[in-house]
């Protein structure tokens, strides 16, 4: 019951208070939209890490494929934007199928093989000039429509859209995690033999997580393309789309559903509002420090870390 209340209050704040209070400040809204965009990718990345047990250094690939798929469908084939965004997710999911041979590699090699795929997709986007416009990119990609009287192309509208996407993904993630699939996936990390012998097709489940994670990343990539109305390969496949979500997920706690999203909000907003002001070039250094620091101080991220500290304090207080 208490849990329900918290969720309700959070929803009212997110959908009501934020646009009411900040809606008029375009710059702040843009930052929040960008932070949620990264949060969406971070959530997808963490789903793959937490449930699939796979660390990926190549989510930029899925982000870029989703962005291009959607943009091309809208520009060249006049698909409605929202439908094309779903297709962007499907495009990224299809691309992830190409990466599946990498699933039989051990952890670090999988991570790096996916990184290689990211580069390959970027180069292909540059080379497929007739489809993607090549290195010059695509200009004036149509923005979001008006839906149920809400102009999604406005800052507030775009905010509501990405918020909804992220919430839907978080809900889906939670659903998977609580299902027997989620249980089996959780058990697989440390007890792969025990799970296989009772009939769990572990490689298939991992593959499924990869597809779902890629789909989510693709949808978010597509959202971003229609939000900024512009794409070029260097931007769509930029390593930032990998680095920032990883930093956010690890900072917020990649073993939790909300950690990556909250992590993205904190990390990105602090970076843009503080560090970018302090050091205009090279402020991404902060993400590097963050990644290294989190690995050394608490390999499961900040949320569990905070939980541990507060537990410790409670037990001290009790003693």
């Amino acid at each position: 019951m208490k849990h329900r209340m918290v969720v309700l209050v959070a929803l009212v704040l997110a959908y009501g208070a934020v646009p009411l209070l900040l809606g008029s400040m375009d710059y702040v809204m843009s930052l929040i939209i960008a932070a949620l965009t990264i949060g969406g990718v971070a959530l997808a990345w963490a789903l793959l890490g937490n449930l699939g047990g796979l660390v990926s250094f190549g989510h930029a690939a899925f982000f870029g494929v989703g962005a291009y798929t959607s943009a091309i469908l809208v520009v060249d084939h006049h698909w409605p934007v929202l439908l094309a965004m779903v297709a962007g997710g499907v495009g990224a999911a299809v691309a992830s199928v190409a990466t599946m041979p990498a699933l039989r590699l051990r952890g670090p090699y999988f991570a790096l093989a996916i990184l290689a795929y990211g580069h390959i997709f970027r180069i292909l986007a540059v080379e497929a000039t007739s489809l993607t416009g090549g290195a010059a990119g695509m200009l004036s990609i149509p923005g979001f429509p008006t839906l149920l009287g809400i102009n999604l192309a406005s800052k507030t509208g775009a905010y509501a859209l990405i918020l909804t996407i992220v919430l839907l993904f978080a809900w889906l993630y939670g659903l998977i995690r609580r299902s027997t699939y989620g249980l089996a996936l959780r058990a697989m990390h440390d007890s792969e033999l025990a799970t296989r012998v009772v009939g769990v097709p572990s490689t298939h489940l991992k593959a499924a997580m990869l597809v779902i994670s890629a789909f989510m990343t693709g949808v978010v990539g597509a959202f971003n393309a229609h939000q900024i109305n512009f794409l070029d390969p260097e931007y769509a496949f930029a390593s930032s789309w990998t680095v920032l979500p990883i930093a956010a997920a690890i900072f917020g706690g990649y073993r939790t559903v909300w950690g990556p999203v909250l992590g993205a909000l904190v990390v990105f907003l602090v970076d843009q509002l503080v560090f970018k002001e302090l050091m205009p070039s090279g402020h991404q250094l902060v993400f590097g420090v963050l990644l290294g620091g989190m690995v050394i101080l608490g390999p499961h991220g900040l949320l569990p870390l905070l939980g541990r500290w507060s537990k410790k304090e409670a037990s001290h207080a009790g003693a």
Partner: peptide, 30 residues
């Protein structure tokens, strides 16, 4: 720094050195 990793060194070292790489790149940029 790698010596301070306590668990799952193979994967965590990957993330750690990835972070160090970002720090070095940006230091050089600055």
């Amino acid at each position: 720094l790698i010596g301070r990793i306590r668990q799952d060194r193979e994967l965590n070292s990957l993330i750690l050195t990835f972070g160090i790489a970002i720090v070095l790149t940006n230091l050089i940029l600055m």
